[in-house]
């Protein structure tokens, strides 16, 4: 589904990603872990098409198409979804209006009829249950005044509405209490199928107790330096990242 080859990206001339290779197949969950500043969020942002990152080398093929060649909105319409680390508050734009606009733009791209108000609302009600989100929240401006947990829940709710093929969760667990984490993870798990895939970007292993990955990759200094299964995450939890840093840094010398 997704093939990343030798991906290099920089910000304001500073290289952040220095040759990422990754293959994600339908039905899989990949966890990207790594110490702060290793490039995890950059990878998520580059995949979603954030403009301030400049791809200097490499390619990303998503379902046979060159992902890097597409505008952010087209990536979303093709089925890439980024759950933001810091969801943006947008005063004056109601969550419902926003979501209906987004959904209908995606549907139009896919050659589907737009949803009328009634169908949209009933779909919304159904998906709201997934992340136990309150309708009152959705009648307010997008993310405005939402708590951290509400924002993250809203991200997963949007994901449920847009039904992406590839979901990238950028630090979705950070700052969540256990209840919220359980709700969010539960939502993600219910959306999983053998047709879609998930990339979970996280600093902590904790999330992986709830969303069980098939593969775990460790990112350090802009490269994937180690890959394994969920056991690798447990090892990292226990021993921290220092041993990997040492391994890599000494090999480089």
């Amino acid at each position: 589904m997704l093939t990343i080859k030798n991906l290099h990206a920089s910000v304001d001339g500073t290289p952040i990603l220095r040759g990422i290779n990754l293959e994600v197949k339908a039905g899989e969950v990949h966890a990207i872990m790594g110490p702060n500043g290793s490039g995890k969020s950059t990878l998520a942002s580059v995949l979603a098409g954030r403009e301030e990152y400049e791809v200097t080398e490499g390619e990303v093929i998503f379902q046979g198409k060159d992902l890097l060649d597409m505008a952010p909105e087209d990536r979303a319409r093709e089925g890439v979804f980024l759950a933001f680390q810091y969801p943006v508050e947008i005063p004056g734009v109601s969550s419902t209006n926003f979501l209906r606009t987004a959904l209908n733009q995606v549907r139009e791209y896919r050659g589907q009829e737009p949803l009328d108000a009634v169908k949209f609302l009933s779909l919304m009600k159904e998906k709201m249950k997934l992340v136990e989100i309150d309708q009152k929240l959705l009648s307010r401006s997008l993310n405005e005044g939402f708590s951290g947990g509400e924002k993250k829940r809203n991200e997963i709710f949007q994901m449920a509405m847009l039904e992406p093929t590839l979901s990238i969760l950028d630090e979705t667990d950070s700052g969540l209490d256990i209840d919220a984490l359980r709700i969010v993870s539960n939502g993600v798990n219910q959306l999983k199928s053998d047709k879609n895939a998930t990339i979970v970007v996280t600093h902590y292993q904790r999330l992986l107790d709830y969303i069980v990955p098939d593969y775990v990759h460790v990112l350090y200094k802009g490269r994937i330096v180690k890959s394994g299964t969920k056991e690798l995450a447990l090892e990292l939890e226990e021993k921290g990242y220092d041993w990997i840093k040492e391994e890599v840094d000494s090999a480089a010398v």
Binding site: A48, P72, L82, V88, S141, L162
Partner: peptide, 27 residues
């Protein structure tokens, strides 16, 4: 125009021109 908000809307599949309009109208 808040570039971060613009990107957020685009990342949900909303066309850039429409996203700009949506933000300015909200403004």
């Amino acid at each position: 125009l808040d570039e971060e908000a613009l990107f957020y809307l685009q990342a949900r599949g909303i066309d850039k021109t429409l996203a700009k309009g949506l933000l300015l109208y909200a403004f």
